[in-house]
Design a protein around this nucleic acid. Structure first.
Lengths: 191, 191
DNA sequence: GAAACTTGAATGACCGTTTAAAAAACTGTT
DNA sequence: AACAGTTTTTTAAACGGTCATTCAAGTTTC
């Protein structure tokens, strides 16, 4: 009922405001007051809903991870061959709603700070392992075993590298082009 | 004379301390006092030498960029073929003195914060453009023109991605293995 | 003795979190 | 519909703490 609704609405609003505010000011220096202003709320209300600044950051990362997982599931549903599923894994990282400067920027900042927060590093490890196993599963169907690991490293590191670069971009990103480029890289690695 | 010497010695000491302290605590939260303690000095002396915290961070990044450039020059000196020079570009990023967890971690943090500091982003852009042009020069000798750009993206993003991953590592890194892996990736992309 | 170096203490600013009290939303009753 | 009581939501203000930077007064070096 309404009991749940308001809480959900505020959670969503505050997380969106967090993404925008962190992108604008940087993870290290953004303040509760700035995030609150972005959301049209007060700093105190953030603590009411998330308990602390760290709780808000963790919730924001969880939110983004959810979007990522959802994008990957959607791609998998229509992929039929190993190569198509490989494309799907890459495409998920460059999906329209995900591959934007603010979100790449946020991800970048979370990564950089993960080693100093047990909560963030846990999420980071889990996500990385998931992507890794997806890659391995598809690559084993496409390459001899002794080349699988090298190809996996090449592709997974490529994806990370693209985000890293995207986070620095001053113009809007082009997800279509990013996906096309990723496909070209896949085809380069697996002729 | 000594006039210059002491200043140089302190600069070096303080920058080394900065690398260690930033790695231990994180760019966003490390304090002047912590860096000073690491160097066995006082916070005030850092300002005496570097003017401000941001000045220290810029000097540290400049120092690391210098090491990188030096490693690349060293590799280039002995490389004879385009493929060897391509290896050399990669190897520079995974050189023994450079490819350590603290330094990858620092680089990561600088990258993440570059968009919020005109000084850092300037350095970042310059370095990236330099690596890019090296890659392009060698790749043009090895591939037909229409595959050069894709290969460049694959390799440059791979390098960034490896560092990103290395920054999260809890064990010491293995530069030898990293270079071998990089060579395998090059060979995968350019058969 | 001058110039370069060092630092403890003071300064001034900022920030996350808590608290207490008000506002709003909801409930059941008349 | 109106209302009194209860719960949920909101925030202004206060609190406790941290930190970069400055400065004046020392110490060392030449």
């Amino acid at each position: 009922m309404s009991r749940k609704r308001i809480r959900d609405i505020r959670n969503e609003e505050l997380i969106e405001a967090t993404i925008v505010a962190v992108h604008k000011r940087g993870y290290g220096v953004v303040t509760m007051a700035e995030i609150a202003r972005e959301a049209g709320a007060s700093a105190a209300s953030i603590n009411y809903y998330f308990g602390s600044k760290e709780g808000l950051m963790e919730a924001t990362m969880l939110h983004l991870l959810g979007k990522l997982r959802q994008a990957m599931s959607a791609g998998y549903a229509t992929a039929r061959t190993p190569r198509e599923r490989l494309y799907a894994v890459m495409d998920a990282n460059f999906a329209d709603g995900l591959f934007t400067v603010p979100q790449c920027s946020i991800w970048m900042q979370f990564w950089a700070n993960a080693p100093y927060s047990t909560r963030l590093s846990r999420l980071h490890r889990i996500n990385r392992a998931r992507v890794r196993s997806h890659f391995l599963a598809e690559l084993r169907a496409l390459l001899p075993e002794d080349r699988v690991e090298t190809a996996r490293q090449a592709l997974q590191c490529y994806m990370d590298g693209v985000w890293l670069q995207a986070a620095q971009s001053e113009e809007a990103l082009d997800p279509d082009e990013a996906r096309a480029a990723a496909h070209r890289v896949v085809d380069l690695v697996i002729p």
